[in-house]
Design a protein around this nucleic acid. Structure first.
Lengths: 204, 204
DNA sequence: TCAGCTTTGTGAAGATATTGACAATATCTA
DNA sequence: TAGATATTGTCAATATCTTCACAAAGCTGA
């Protein structure tokens, strides 16, 4: 596998999502040009992105959808048993949990933690006090979804100290993480602002 | 205002968020170097991004936080009365609504639509049948948050036909939009996949 | 007021990312 | 089997983005 650039890395999930969708529609074979229209990325860019992983396609034929999904999943290290923990079981946390039907896309949320576990109602996964994270957290969990509304930095520090290396950030707080820990911010407000900027830009 | 590149556009919400945070902490003045550490973007990049909007800073001094927020908001067209509509009032939609305390960051959700409004409980905003979107939707609404789980394409078409130009997509479906309509996908699953790819990449 | 210090704003260089063009190689059909 | 056709994979060219380096300009304190 060659050096994968940042830009390419961001496109892989898009491809994977599209390919899974195509598969569910019964599509067996896809050409870069078709996929390009589907995901709105240039065919050349797609071919180049794919070629970084290996020779996935066949000239004159295209790509085998099943095979592509298989290779993408395995060579990029998707683990269908990935154990994800949820930290903060407020409204948003609960909604995510209810919605935890990720149909074998990438593991599932195995347990949740909250500062006031007594105040949280019945959940579909075990719920623990955040104080007991160290003991209760599965040892092989690497990913945490953080939806707490206070003590964000403290929470993140605790997670990092206990082996979490990937954080999905749904808070609105700014925080810092040790080197080696990856963060992705999922923020609807920022998303809306970005949309507004983009929309208004057209008027210049 | 000069030509703003895509990359810069994506950073503006990050700056704005950080600046608002700094303001709330009582910070009056900030230098590109300070801000750089805070948001993890090079000072030069920040200065260049800012300079596209105008001469916002003062040499030897830095930037005035309040002023910067003001200029950002106004010259990028943030409308604090922006009317946002929510389409699909399932678990996720409801959680977003409860969470609709965007402290004057960018308007608010003014009403919601669902295919089965009878099945949805009490909400904090008026709820209408999606069939009545045309009549019930505020005429000046431009942004829609889409959380429906079926008929996604149909829903999006309806929105586009009724003047929505910006869509925040929380579905897992692929859909197409007419030219001029902007979409931003907020997808936790894709975010997690991206994180996994990035994390694993380190092992090569 | 003036010298010294600081920080911005920006031209130019360097780094990254995208795209055009086409050889290589597979499929398809007769 | 062979020729026609289609599509990949990749080199080179182009475009976009980031960073360096420094002049210009404002602040600060004597």
């Amino acid at each position: 596998m060659k050096q994968v650039s940042k830009a390419t890395l961001q496109r892989y999930p898009v491809y994977l999502k599209a390919l899974r969708k195509l598969k569910s529609l019964g599509v067996k074979r896809v050409m870069s040009k078709e996929l390009a229209e589907y995901v709105d990325i240039q065919p050349t860019t797609i071919r180049r992105d794919f070629s970084l992983i290996g020779h996935l396609g066949k000239q004159g034929f295209g790509y085998d959808v099943d095979e592509l999904i298989e290779i993408f999943s395995s060579s990029l290290g998707i683990n269908f048993d990935e154990k994800i923990i949820l930290v903060g079981a407020g409204n948003l946390g609960k909604a995510l949990l209810k919605y935890n039907n990720w149909d074998n896309v990438i593991g599932e949320i195995v347990c949740a933690f909250d500062k006031y576990p007594d105040k949280v109602g019945e959940l579909s996964v075990p719920l623990y006090d955040i104080k007991d994270l160290k003991e209760k957290m599965p040892k092989d969990a690497r990913i945490a979804i953080v939806c707490v509304s206070s003590d964000v930095q403290k929470t993140v520090d605790l997670l990092a100290a206990n082996g979490i290396v990937s954080i999905v950030d749904l808070t609105h707080e700014h925080f810092v993480v040790p080197k080696g820990v990856h963060v992705r911010c999922v923020d609807i407000v920022s998303t809306i602002i970005e949309l507004v900027f983009e929309t208004n830009k057209l008027n210049y």
